[in-house]
Amino acid sequence: MLLPEVHVDEPITISAAAELLGITVDTIRYYEKEGIAPAPERGQDGWRRYDTATLSWLAGTVMLRGTGMSVQEMREYAAAYRAGADDAARLALLEQHHATVLARQAEVQRHLAALERKIEAYRETIAATGAQAVARPPARSTIG
């Protein structure tokens, strides 16, 4: 994956990788277990060590998940990459997802516009009745 770009001078631990990427250690382990992210090399102590290439792949995975790509779609993309699928095949997967994201974005924009209209209607109502609302004291409880 080309973006987002991540660089480390020395391989880092899974905890440091999680912090750098803004995800949990469990999320990284899950992506590895599901075949979405490559298993990193291990240090002499047996602990996972994440280099720039592995971190870049994980960063791309985080980005794809952030755009709403399903785990199944991420598995398919990773499998295509590992199987040596050509750039055109991988591009097709990403373009299909891109179209889905744009459609979802348009839907969110429609909902946002409706929400903004509703907020404005409430503001206008409050402004028109504001003097009356301020003049009325709040209801008091009769329970002492």
Results as ranks from 00 to 15, higher is better:
Ala106Glu: 14
Ala128Ile: 03
Arg90Tyr: 05
Ala127Phe: 02
His98Asn: 15
Lys118Ile: 06
Ile119Gln: 12
Arg104Ser: 11
Glu107Val: 04
Ala106His: 11
Ala89Ser: 11
Met69Gly: 05
Arg123Pro: 02
Ala113Thr: 12
Gly84Ser: 07
Arg90Met: 13
Glu124Cys: 02
Tyr122Pro: 01
Arg75Val: 08
Glu116Asn: 13
Thr67Val: 11
Leu102Ile: 07
Ala80Ile: 00
Ala78Met: 04
Tyr81Leu: 09
Leu102Gln: 15
Ala92Phe: 04
Glu124Asp: 14
Ala78Asn: 03
Gln96Pro: 01
Gln96Ile: 03
Gln109Ser: 08
Arg104Tyr: 01
Ala127Val: 06
Ala89Trp: 03
Gly68Leu: 07
Ser70Gly: 14
Glu107Pro: 00
His111Asn: 11
Glu107Met: 07
Thr67Gly: 09
Tyr77Glu: 02
Glu116Ala: 13
Gln72Leu: 10
Leu94Ser: 05
Glu116Ser: 12
Met74Cys: 09
Ile119Ala: 12
Tyr81Val: 08
Gly66His: 07
Val108Arg: 08
Ile119Tyr: 05
Arg82Glu: 13
Arg123Phe: 00
Tyr122Thr: 06
Leu112Met: 12
Asp87Val: 11
Val108Tyr: 09
Glu124Phe: 00
Leu102Tyr: 05
Ala121Thr: 12
Glu73Ala: 14
Ile119His: 11
Ala103Gly: 13
Ile126Phe: 13
Ala80Lys: 07
Lys118Asn: 12
Leu112Asp: 04
Thr67Glu: 08
Thr100Lys: 15
His111Val: 02
Leu102Phe: 05
Ala83Thr: 02
Ile119Ser: 06
Ala79Val: 03
Gly68Gln: 10
Gln105Arg: 15
Ala78Tyr: 01
Ala92Asp: 14
Glu95Ser: 11
Ile126Val: 15
Gly66Lys: 10
Glu73Lys: 10
Leu112Cys: 04
Glu107Gly: 08
His111Arg: 13
Ala128Asn: 12
Thr125Arg: 11
Leu102Glu: 15
Arg82Leu: 07
Glu120Lys: 11
Leu91Lys: 12
Ala121Arg: 11
Met74Ala: 05
Met74Ser: 01
Gln96Phe: 03
Thr100Gly: 12
Glu120Cys: 00
Glu120Tyr: 02
Ala128Ser: 12
Asp87Phe: 05
Glu116Phe: 01
Ala106Tyr: 02
Ala106Gln: 15
Leu112Tyr: 09
Asp86Ala: 08
Ala79Pro: 01
Ala79Glu: 14
Asp86Met: 03
Ala85Val: 01
Ala106Trp: 03
Ala78His: 00
Ala113Asp: 15
Val101Pro: 01
Tyr81Lys: 07
Ala99Arg: 15
Glu107Phe: 02
Gly66Trp: 04
Asp87Pro: 00
Val71Asp: 04
Arg104Gln: 14
Arg104Lys: 14
Ala103Cys: 07
Leu93Glu: 08
His111Gln: 14
Val71Tyr: 03
Ser70Gln: 07
Arg123Ile: 01
Tyr77Val: 05
Glu95Phe: 05
His97Lys: 11
Gly68Glu: 09
Ala83Gln: 13
Arg110Ala: 11
Thr125Gly: 13
Arg90Ala: 04
Arg75Leu: 01
Tyr122Ile: 03
